[in-house]
Nucleic acid binder design. Structure first.
Lengths: 134, 134
DNA sequence: TTAATAAAGGACAAAAATGTCTTTTATTTG
DNA sequence: CAAATAAAAGACATTTTTGTCCTTTATTAA
């Protein structure tokens, strides 16, 4: 789950890096990465091409999608909706003591992840160190 | 890890509920609860008395401690310090693209958990539904 | 002082998350 | 079309987290 954004930043700029190349650059077990990429491509976040010279890439429109989409695809959306204390009964109509205050924090996080596109994140990475080895 | 705050809210008001009593009221496996309570009592957040009529309680001064202490005791403080993306290289001097913005969100959460005492949380629970069965 | 009670502690078991390996399928290039 | 390449897919292994059980130790009350 860690190695998510690396793909995003690498796979673009026209090229189509393969699993091995990506794995080396982000310092992650290749076979494990493969599974994650499979999920992401099934969810339509990244695209893949089989065969020689194949690999992964992201379409221009895909770069516009928010980081939140990646999280949702990989881990579901509990982060965006769950209670701070993990209380199952907690809801808008039956809030736990921290519910309202926490909701603000959570909403801000949600906003942040929805307002930051994969492309923007990538751009900042390229501008900076690009140290993605975990 | 879920069943944390329940103890806090129950064990006070002079009584010393035992594991069984607590477990039933919060709908959690008793033996598992026991381990959590052990940790918390080792950390000095709750107190325990062995023998007949023994059980768990929290001293008045303990009620003043922030919720954050419970979290730290049980899960460490990565929540309060870690990077949103789980990037190990991310730090103040080498920030990831979301670092600064996320830090604000995280600090707000931290503040919230430090400003809310166990006692205050308990009070709100007693005032409200007190539905703590998970 | 002894019997009953209840937490402490450690060993063990199950489930989930993480990671590895092998086979299959699709694509491209010669 | 054949061979090589690379992702897809699923089986399998390891590790971590979560949960259970049993024995020991401390305390209280009769």
């Amino acid at each position: 789950m860690r190695a998510v954004f690396y793909i995003a930043s690498r796979s673009s700029d026209g090229a189509r890096p393969g699993i091995r190349e990506i794995a080396e650059n982000i310092n992650s077990p290749g076979h494990f990465l493969a599974k994650i990429l499979q999920k992401l491509s099934k969810e339509g976040i990244i695209c893949s091409v089989k065969g020689p010279n194949g690999g992964f890439y992201i379409e221009p429109q895909g770069l516009k999608r928010p980081l939140a989409d990646i999280i949702t695809a990989l881990e579901g959306n509990e982060i965006f909706t769950g209670c701070a204390m993990g209380l199952s009964y907690c809801s808008e109509s039956n809030p736990c003591p921290l519910h309202h205050e926490f909701k603000q924090v959570r909403n801000r996080l949600t906003q942040m992840l929805y307002n930051t596109s994969i492309g923007a994140f990538k751009q900042e990475l390229l501008d900076g160190a690009l140290t993605l080895n975990k």
